[in-house]
Design a protein around this nucleic acid. Structure first.
Lengths: 124, 124
DNA sequence: ATCCTTGTTTAGAATAGTTCTTGATCTAAA
DNA sequence: TTTAGATCAAGAACTATTCTAAACAAGGAT
C-alpha cells in the first residue's frame, strides 16, 4: 500500500455514495496529493480492484465507476437524476436463483445493473 | 427498414449464438453487401436496438455485442473459452426478486451478466 | 419526368476512456 | 551503500464509438 494507493482508496471511500469515475477520483486525489497523475489513479484503482478492496462498476459503455462496498450488491442507475445507488441482496437470497443456469456451469461472479427512476425522482 | 438494416439484422440473427460485436457484424455484412460501411453498421445496430429488434449486451468495457433474443434473459460469459451464452429466466421468476429495492423506485430494466466457466470448460 | 424534402449512407475525422511506454523515483533487501 | 524490483508521472497510443459533411435514395407534389 503506497501513499498514492492510500490516497486513491481514501477518496473512493469518501465518495462512496457517489460512485466516482476515475476522473472524479483523480480530481479529488489531486487535492490531497497534487503531484498524483491520472495514470497513477488508473493504476491504483486497478490494483485495489484486483486486491478486492474496491469494485469496478460498469453501466453500458459509460466511464467505469468505483465502489468500496464489498458486500454482494447490485447497482441502480436513476435515468432521471443520473445517480447510482447500491442495492443490497435480501437476506438468504441468491442473485442467480431466478436464472435457469445450464447444469455444470461454474459461476464466479454476477453483475446486476438496474435502470429506472429512484424514489426521489418517481415523486415519493 | 432499409436494405442495410435488413442485412445487419439478418447477420445478427445468423450469428445469434455468437453474440457478435459491431466489427464482427460488419465483417459478415460486407459479404452480403460489399459497399456497407462500419458507420452504417453502427447506425443500423442503434436503430434496431431502439426499435427493440435487437439487444445490446455489455460485458465490462469490452466491445458491445448484439443479440436478437428478445425474451428476458441474462448473459453468461465463459472466462475460459470466451464465449457468451443466453441464460433464460425461470418460469414465473422475477430478476429483481433477490434484491432489496428501496420503496418507490421504478425499475425499467435490468442487466444481468454472469462470469464463470461454462459446462464444457468445467469438464462435463 | 423533374424538383423538393427528408432521412440514410459513406468515409473519414474526432472523441472519450483507458492502456501503454519510457525514463525517473522510491523502497527494501543485501 | 548498492542494487533490484516495483511504482510513478507524463504523454503518446489505442480502441470502440460517435460525429460531420457531403453524396445518395425514395417518395410525393408539381
Amino acid at each position: 500500500m503506497t501513499k498514492q494507493r492510500r490516497v486513491v482508496y481514501d477518496v473512493v471511500r469518501e465518495l462512496a455514495t457517489d460512485h466516482p469515475t476515475a476522473s472524479e477520483v483523480y480530481a479529488s486525489a489531486k487535492k490531497k496529493m497534487s503531484s498524483i497523475s491520472l495514470a497513477t489513479v488508473y493504476n491504483c484503482l486497478e490494483t485495489l480492484t484486483h486486491a478486492g478492496a474496491v469494485t469496478q462498476v460498469n453501466i453500458d459503455r459509460e466511464a467505469s465507476r468505483f465502489c468500496p462496498n464489498l458486500q454482494p450488491h447490485a447497482h441502480f442507475f436513476c435515468s432521471c437524476c443520473d445517480s447510482v445507488f447500491d442495492v443490497e441482496l435480501r437476506q438468504r437470497a441468491d442473485a442467480s436463483s431466478p436464472w435457469n443456469l445450464p447444469d455444470g456451469s461454474r459461476i464466479e461472479g454476477i453483475d446486476v445493473a438496474m435502470r429506472g427512476t429512484c424514489p426521489k425522482c418517481s415523486g415519493h
